[in-house]
Write a protein that binds this DNA or RNA. Structure first.
Length: 608
RNA sequence: GGUUCCGUAGCUCAGUUGGAUAGAGCAACAGCCUUCUAAGCUGUGGGUCCCGCGUUCGAGUCGCGGCGGAAUCACCA
């Protein structure tokens, strides 16, 4: 668990003081001791006057009076005793307190004095957390679903490390198994030795091409067998491509040199391709595990567990876990031919990782289609006696769907990761060139801005959605650059930077000491309140594993700032105290926006 | 069929210990650039929060029962 450090109570100070005073008030006025959870303080909603609100309903049982009278009575008492409260009003059962201008300004000053907006986000008890994300198969290139996975995983890494945790980014590469053999076999049969060099194709795409080819040829074989009168289920097993694939997997597991060489060669193509995509997405890993290296440990674990009577064996020699006692099912762990399945290697990988890192928590960033898999994984590890399995957390995120449903390779509706990234950058280029604000930039500088904007749009689009929920991506409507989008937030930042460039030209610089003298306007107080919420938002995002909270917070802040920017002049303000205050307010806003986007893996352009 | 998740404006999404009149963006319509960046700002229209019952002073939020959708229950990963 994450807890705010003592000094972070600065964030909460007013709520805590108010709560204490109210408790005192109720005690004095109604002569009774109230439980803390009955004193509900929240930020006052925008459409009402005030800063903090006490919900008085829970206190009526003590006052034995109407909500209005109770609110008035408590309000009067508090205003009298608590000088930071400048006034109050009661609407229905809500007692709205108004906080003095100077309290807000003091608060703002302490915020402005921070080195970074993330300074206060440290957890009391830092933990070692492994985050596994990406987890590609080496038989096809990455697609939109992987993009969501990678962005979530990487953002969780940044959020958790910003809160002081020791986070290890890891990746399990599913580089072996029957599916890999399919693309290998198809390449052997149909490629005439085609390579990335000879074809000019990116390696992962080339291998993917032969995986698709396998599926096509295999389906044809099945239909021929079915036409000849064979049952479809039987045909699926009997098709020569399938029997050859199974033979290949057996050869691979027994270390056949020829199969092994082919496997190594094709995987190296894929890795070169993946590296390119990861680099473009801006994600990386501290430690990469390969299924081909962990599945053996998994097999050993299974055999040992069988000897310990934790598992059972069928007459055909296949090995199973009976989890019906845990409300789950029978689960196969080793096939009758002795080869490993997905679960086998995941058992091996988990044990391997714990032995290496002794993590407190292990986050698996894996789609919700595998919820059952992780229930089973934890159950088996627990049964094997690994207490740390309680620290395994399936970060189960939703699928990315198209308007017509799931992406299907057979229907050619898979949205390729590389293609999408290129498209986003091209859209960013088109929009930017049309606006023509970067005319004095070199081509390289321009391209760098286009890259930041295109990726910013893509990343924000994906991360702003609650990770648990399925989301829809419509390829026909390209990702927006207006409204609640990444570019909107980048734009807000670029505008602020532009103010500071102008300030420099005018010889104006911000002065943190003179902000105490200012009388802040309503809009400025609203901004300070929003800025104040940042630390809490980051903590919520860390405890709730939700980058979306940060995205939505950033949007709200950017929108609020844009209104302020529109309605008030900063450098054009005549009163130097007010001008300076607005300048510092803009500065802090830009820093918070930049930090927030950094937590999402989104870069900020200085101009756009 | 069993289990799990989801259902909020035409579309995409917010709405976190149950709190006030359910919010944004997109799309539509009407405005705002001699000014620090109009990728912006302002306004209008748009809702049976899937339905019903219950708990509560108070339910989009919690419970139960329906309806609709998704995932999963593989010697696939």
């Amino acid at each position: 668990m994450l807890y705010l450090q003592p000094e972070n109570f600065l964030q909460k100070k007013m709520e805590i003081l108010l709560k204490k005073k109210i408790k005192e008030a109720v005690n004095f006025l109604y002569n009774c001791d109230v439980a803390d959870n009955l004193i509900q303080i929240q930020e006052t909603r925008k459409d009402f006057t005030g800063d903090f609100t006490l919900v008085v309903f829970p206190l009526l049982r003590f006052s034995k009076n109407t909500p209005e009278n109770t609110g008035e009575t408590i309000g009067n008492y508090i205003v009298d005793k608590f000088h930071s409260i400048s006034g109050f009003n009661v609407i229905k059962g809500f007692l709205n307190f108004e906080i003095s201008n100077s309290w807000w300004i003091d608060y703002f000053a302490s915020m402005a004095a921070q080195e970074s907006p993330l300074d206060k986000c440290k957890a009391v008890k830092p933990e070692t957390v492994m985050v596994e994300y990406s987890s590609p198969n080496t038989n096809k290139p990455l697609h939109l679903g992987h993009i969501r996975n990678n962005l979530l995983g990487y953002s969780l890494f940044r959020i958790l490390s910003s809160c002081g945790h020791n986070v290890i980014k890891t990746n399990i590469v599913n580089d072996r198994g029957i599916h890999i053999c399919k693309s290998m076999l198809a390449w052997e049969k149909f490629s005439n030795g085609e390579t990335p060099e000879s074809s000019g194709m990116k390696g992962d795409h080339l291998v993917g091409k032969y995986y698709v080819r396998f599926e096509k040829e295999y389906r044809e074989q099945i239909s021929k067998l079915v036409e000849g009168g064979m049952d479809e289920a039987v045909a699926k097993n009997a098709a020569s491509l399938m029997t050859e694939t199974r033979d290949m997997l057996l050869k691979w597991e027994s270390g056949d040199p020829e199969v092994y060489e082919l496997w190594k060669m094709m995987n190296s193509w894929v890795y070169a391709g993946f590296d390119e995509t990861y680099k473009k997405l801006g994600v990386d890993f501290d430690k990469i595990y390969y299924e081909s290296e962990t599945y053996k440990l998994g097999k050993e674990l299974v055999v040992t567990a069988l000897e310990n009577n934790i598992l059972y064996q069928n007459e055909d020699n296949s090995i199973w876990a009976d989890l019906t006692g845990e409300g789950l099912d029978q689960k196969l762990l080793l096939r009758s031919d002795g080869t490993a399945v997905y679960m086998t290697q995941d058992l091996g990988t988990a044990v391997n990782r714990f032995n290496e890192y002794h993590f407190d928590k292990h986050l698996y960033v894996v789609g919700n289609e595998q919820n059952y898999h992780f229930q089973v994984l934890t159950a088996i590890l627990k049964r094997m006696g690994y207490e740390w399995a309680d620290g395994l957390i399936h970060f189960s995120y939703g699928m990315v769907e198209l308007p017509e449903g799931r992406m299907k390779s057979r229907e050619g509706t898979i949205v390729d990761a590389d293609d999408l990234i290129v498209e986003m950058q091209e859209t960013a280029r088109d929009v930017s060139l049309e606006l023509g604000k970067l005319a004095d930039f070199s081509v390289d500088e321009q391209e760098d801005v286009f890259r930041k904007i295109g990726l910013g749009a893509l990343k924000y689009y994906i991360l702003k959605v609650d990770p648990k929920k399925n989301m829809t991506f419509n390829p026909a409507e390209s990702i927006d650059f207006n409204g609640n989008t990444g570019p909107f937030i980048q734009y807000t930042y670029a505008r602020i930077r532009s103010v500071f460039r102008k300030a420099e030209q005018l010889g104006i610089s911000e002065d943190y000491n003179s902000i105490f003298d200012v009388k802040a306007g309503q809009k400025e107080i609203v901004l300070i309140k929003l800025l104040r919420r940042f630390t809490q938002t980051v903590n919520d995002a860390a405890t709730g594993y939700s980058p979306a909270l940060i995205a939505n917070y950033s949007y709200e802040l950017a929108r609020e700032y844009n209104q302020f920017y529109h309605d008030f002049s900063i450098l054009g303000e005549n009163d130097p105290v007010v001008r300076n205050f607005r300048l510092v307010l803009s500065k802090v806003t830009s820093e918070v926006l930049k930090s927030a986007m950094w937590l999402l893996g989104i870069e900020m352009p200085e101009r756009m």
